[in-house]
Design a protein around this nucleic acid. Structure first.
Lengths: 134, 134
DNA sequence: GTCGTTGCAAAGCCTTTGCAGGGAA
DNA sequence: TTCCCTGCAAAGGCTTTGCAACGAC
C-alpha cells in the first residue's frame, strides 16, 4: 500500500465502523457514500491489498459467498440463519482442544460454520404458531 | 429422478466407489470412463438431482471450491493440507456439545474445516530438514 | 410415441486483468 | 513530474439455462 487514496480510506473506514463480516456488494454500496465513483474492480484490488497486509480476512461462507472482516477481532465463528439468510458473529469457540484430528495431522487453523435459526426468527416463528387472541 | 440413464448410473457408481469428496472436474473425468460423451451440464444437472434426493451433499470448501460427497457417510469433517492442497476426511467431530452458541440460537447443522499439514507432507518436510547420510 | 434427459452453446454470476487516463507524493 | 492507482471494459472461471435431438419407458 504505497499511496493513500480516498478509495482506500473509504474501505478502511467501512471496516473500522463495521461489527459484522461484509460481502463485496455491501462494501461497494457503503463505499460509494464516501467516493461516488467507486468501482468494483477497485474494491477487489484494495480488498486484496488489505488481506495481504494482514488487515483483513476473507471468509468463504458456504451460503453467503465471500465475506470480509477485520483480522483484529477476537477468535469467533459464524452462524447462518436459514430464515433471514444473515450471518452472525458468535463469540468464542466450541472446538475441543484435544482430539481435534488424528495422530499425524498438524492443525494450524480452523473455521466453523453453524447454521439454524437465529433468536429473532425463532421469536417470529413462535408468534405465528400462536393463536392471536382477539 | 424419473429415468435411469447411463449418465446417472455412472455418477452413482463413482460416488459409491469413492471414499473422499469429489470436485466437478474429477467427477467429469471419471464419468467419461463410463460414458464417453458425458457433458459438464449433465454432471451439474444430475448432481443437483442427487442432492435434492438427499443422496449427495454439497460442501463449499474454502480452498477447493465445491465438493460433493455421499450423505450416508458417518459424521465427519475435512482437513485441508496447505502443502499438497488435498482434502482429507477426518472421522469424528471435535465440537463441544454444550455452549456451541449463545442462548437463543438454534443450531441445526455445522461444518468444520481444519487446515494445516497432513502426515505425509510433514514426513517429507522433516526428511528434507535432515542431513542425508552418505 | 411421449416426454424426460442429454449435449452443445450461450448466457449469468463473481472475480480478475489490460489499458489509458488521473491523482498522490 | 513520476508512476501508482483508478475506472472502464473485456475476459476468465464456474455454474446455469435454452433448445433441438436423443433415448428410456
Amino acid at each position: 500500500m504505497k499511496r493513500k487514496t480516498s478509495q482506500k480510506i473509504a474501505l478502511e473506514q467501512i471496516f473500522i465502523q463495521q461489527e459484522r463480516p461484509l460481502g463485496v456488494e455491501e462494501i461497494l454500496q457503503q463505499g460509494r457514500k464516501f467516493v461516488k465513483s467507486l468501482n468494483q474492480a477497485t474494491v477487489y484490488r484494495n480488498l486484496k491489498i488489505l488481506i495481504d497486509a494482514g488487515w483483513l480476512r476473507k471468509i468463504s461462507h458456504p451460503f453467503l459467498g465471500n465475506l470480509y472482516e477485520r483480522t483484529n477481532r477476537v477468535h469467533h465463528h459464524h452462524f447462518h440463519c436459514r430464515k433471514c439468510n444473515k450471518a452472525f458473529e458468535l463469540p468464542g469457540c466450541a472446538l475441543k482442544e484435544d482430539n481435534i484430528a488424528p495422530e499425524g495431522f498438524i492443525v494450524e487453523d480452523h473455521e466453523i460454520f453453524l447454521s439454524g435459526i437465529c433468536p429473532s426468527c425463532f421469536k417470529k416463528y413462535s408468534n405465528s404458531q400462536q393463536v392471536t387472541p382477539h
